[in-house]
Write a protein that binds this DNA or RNA. Structure first.
Length: 681
RNA sequence: GCGCCUGUAGCUCAGAAGGAUAGAGCAGCGGUUUCCUAAACCGUUGGUCGGGGGUUCGAUUCCCUCCAGGCGCACCA
């Protein structure tokens, strides 16, 4: 609701300034006064105006306050401090809008077309780990934010099924385990059979159910991705000890790229099976996808050829004839000044042996995402499961929807790849696709490392120097890290113990139904509460905490609000019904006079503003912070304001409304974070 | 060497396009339960915002410089 008021105010201020002072105001900033009694919205533009008009900011503010016609929805404006303008909104009007569950009209799609958000993108050769979870949580939350705003969003999870990491595992099956593709497929079928048997026995659960494993069951016993986790570490070790064996990798890569051979079949079997595991893992975290674009189709459908032609034709790349890159097609980056003089600032796109680098493939893929390639994939469903994503293919299903061709692309990729992402954008610009380049957003985030204490808990022995450092990097290659599923298992177990202590009367299944959303809520919140470019030094004890600034804290506030409404019986239920009509009852303005209550309403009303801010800055952490603040304000209210014991019926109804509104907004904020509200806590 | 990021309380982090007394969580200390369940609440200790310059009426925020840390700069992805 406040978002629409902000927009309206901004516009009115710009018009007024033009009329009254003949000045054009760009970007009218709207802030929050430090204390709620000072007002609801603070505008500091008089300070800027003071410079331009060469007048005192305070005098300008007073002049403005005296003659500015207040837009609809505002009660008054005050000049404050040394030149602030503090606006007070009509409290009951804001509250009525919330109680009417009316969508904030300020929340509008602004991208002007379809958006693709690409995230997760895990190499399909081993189990997902904690770092992958951060990527998925960020991407998925951003998707939810965009959809909340009404944007048309397509979620893609890119599968590099022909890359080095898959090649390594394929080579391990081939050269270390001496398995052929038929044997591997049989093995994978065996894993799947075992999983299904355990599911039937109730020893494990199928997502989206998230039950703990039965006693004596380990994931390693039935998970192919766990098996590959170890195998990948094993062959990486082998390469280190016997560097000659690296020839396997090169041969495997070439064979996979060429296709139609035993190694390619091995790689395909590995990648497909692991993708299935990853989808399952992400499903536990409430993450889903529309499309899985695969590198194999980018190769088979010759996406690169189309991009290559364009790049050559436009002169974006050129064939190097001399120097260390002789025989390669390179792209000049032109970022360095001429003083370097060496002409060294170029990037290899096609190697001298004719194969394409990652950047080259990514330019082609990025062009496709933005509808600029002139080629398309075919599609089929990944599986027959309901809600299964689509996957690219060389031949298509008849009922396949269309994908790609977006106006905006957000690539959730870690900060270490910033340089490469810049090159991809430079490639688009070199092709004359200025707008495509500007609409290709690198949604950059820092990695997740482990705190030294956590690393030692996992059995890594650290040198004294390493122990002094802030963090220890995880390594898939070394098989060192926390697997995503293990972490979720631990969290569910830990939440289960808490639930059991609080709800001993419930049976085990009912307890688990509560523990699951709490555990996942704790995890997602933990991954989202840090701003993107803060490196997370993951600490198990901290992540397992359910108190303080955590997901469960927010969930608990929502549950408490629900408890009041439930115990309020019919009155409580009535408060949850959308308020009929636009007008607020007369006494509401009176009830909202105490700032403690208004503070809660005002905060609840800010959800859309915060969501908008989170989108504009691509910073989901703002939303997480907000959810926590709202929960905090509610807990505060909960303690000092008895609701059901309120004797005055009118005020009681009002307070119940307030509880209902807060609960609804807490749930909405949590939903945007991908977190569910448990029935009880 | 070049580029990007980071440096705020004991620890982990917020401080949105400069602005009103720099905030939270954890940890510490001291309180609050015949209740709308304490996964909560209240109080309290704790800061030269890495150092130094500059721009500005005003700088944690912008610019320069130095210091410290991280990450990038392949015919790997």
């Amino acid at each position: 609701m406040l978002l629409a008021l902000e927009e309206r105010l901004r516009q009115a201020v710009v018009e007024f300034a033009a009329r009254h002072w003949q000045v054009e105001l760009a970007n009218v900033a709207i802030e929050q006064p430090p204390r709620p009694e000072l007002g609801d919205l603070a505008l500091p533009f008089c300070f800027e105006l003071a410079r331009r008009l060469r007048r005192a900011p305070r005098a300008l503010a007073q002049e403005f306050a005296a003659s500015f016609p207040l837009p609809e929805g505002f009660a008054r404006v005050e000049a404050a401090g040394s030149g602030y303008l503090n606006f007070f909104v009509r409290r009951s009007q804001v509250f009525a809008a919330l109680a009417g569950q009316r969508r904030d009209p300020g929340l509008q799609p602004r991208l002007g077309g379809k958006a693709i958000v690409e995230h997760t993108n895990i190499n399909p050769n081993k189990a997902a780990h904690i770092g992958h979870l951060r990527n998925a949580a960020l991407g998925d939350t951003f998707v939810r934010l965009l959809r909340y705003r009404g944007e048309n969003v397509e979620v893609q999870n890119y599968i590099d099924n022909t890359g080095v990491q898959v090649a390594d595992v394929a080579a391990a099956f081939e050269h270390v385990l001496h398995q052929d593709a038929a044997a591997l497929r049989a093995e994978i079928a065996g894993w799947e059979e075992k999983r299904q048997r355990l599911e039937r026995e109730g020893a494990i659960s199928a997502p989206p159910q998230n039950l703990p494993l039965a006693a004596g069951v380990t994931r390693a016993a039935y998970s192919f991705d766990y098996r590959c986790w170890d195998l990948y570490a094993q062959i990486s070790r082998h390469y280190e000890e016997q560097p000659d064996a690296l020839a396997w990798r090169g041969a495997a890569l070439a064979a996979i790229e060429h296709g139609g051979n035993e190694t390619a079949a091995l790689a395909e079997a590995v990648a497909d099976a692991i993708v299935t595991c990853h989808l399952r893992t992400m499903r536990r975290l409430n993450v889903a996808y529309d499309l899985l674009p695969r590198e194999s189709e980018i190769l088979r459908l010759h996406f690169w050829d189309a991009a290559f032609e364009r790049l050559k034709r436009s002169g974006a790349i050129r064939r190097e004839t001399a120097g260390k890159n002789a025989g390669c097609w390179v792209m000049d980056l032109g970022t360095a000044g001429p003083e370097e003089g060496e002409g060294e600032d170029s990037k290899v796109i096609v190697r001298s042996n004719g194969t394409v680098t990652y950047v080259g493939k990514d330019i082609a893929y990025q062009l496709w995402k933005l509808g600029k390639l002139g080629r398309d994939f075919h599609y089929r469903r990944w599986s027959s499961a309901p809600g299964a994503p689509w996957v690219t293919d060389t031949e298509g299903a008849a009922d396949a929807p269309s994908f790609g061709g977006a106006r905006w692309v957000f690539n959730v990729i870690d900060a270490r790849q910033a340089y490469l992402q810049d090159i991809v954008a430079a490639g688009l610009r070199a092709l004359g696709e200025q707008e495509a380049a500007e609409h290709s957003v690198h949604f950059s985030y820092e990695m997740v490392a482990l705190s030294p204490r956590c690393a030692e808990q996992l059995g890594l022995s650290l040198s004294p120097e390493a122990r002094q450092r802030a963090h220890v990097e995880v390594s898939g290659r070394k098989g060192f890290g926390i697997k995503a599923d293990d972490l979720m298992d631990q969290l569910i177990q830990s939440a289960g113990r808490e639930v059991q202590a609080r709800h001993p009367e419930r049976d085990e299944a009912a307890q688990l139904a509560l523990a699951e959303p709490i555990a996942i809520g704790a995890l997602r919140y933990f991954l989202l509460k840090f701003t993107k470019n803060a490196l997370i030094a993951f600490d198990l004890d901290e992540a397992l905490s359910f108190e303080g600034e955590t997901g469960p804290y927010v969930q608990y506030a929502a549950v408490r609000a629900g408890n009041i409404l439930r115990k309020g019986g019919e009155e409580g239920a009535a408060a949850e019904q959308p308020l009929a009509g636009a007008a607020a009852p007369d006494d509401w303005e009176h009830y909202l006079e105490p700032n403690e209550l208004w503070e809660l309403v005002q905060l609840a009303a800010r959800l859309e503003s915060v969501a908008e801010q989170a989108i504009v800055t691509t910073e989901p952490a703002y939303l997480a912070k907000y959810a926590f603040q709202l929960a905090q304000a509610f807990n505060n209210f909960y303690h000092r304001t008895p609701v059901l014991a309120e004797a005055d019926a009118g005020r009681r109804a009002f307070l119940l409304r307030l509880v209902a509104v807060t609960r609804q907004r807490l749930a909405a904020a949590l939903d945007l974070l991908g977190i569910a509200v448990p029935e009880a806590m």
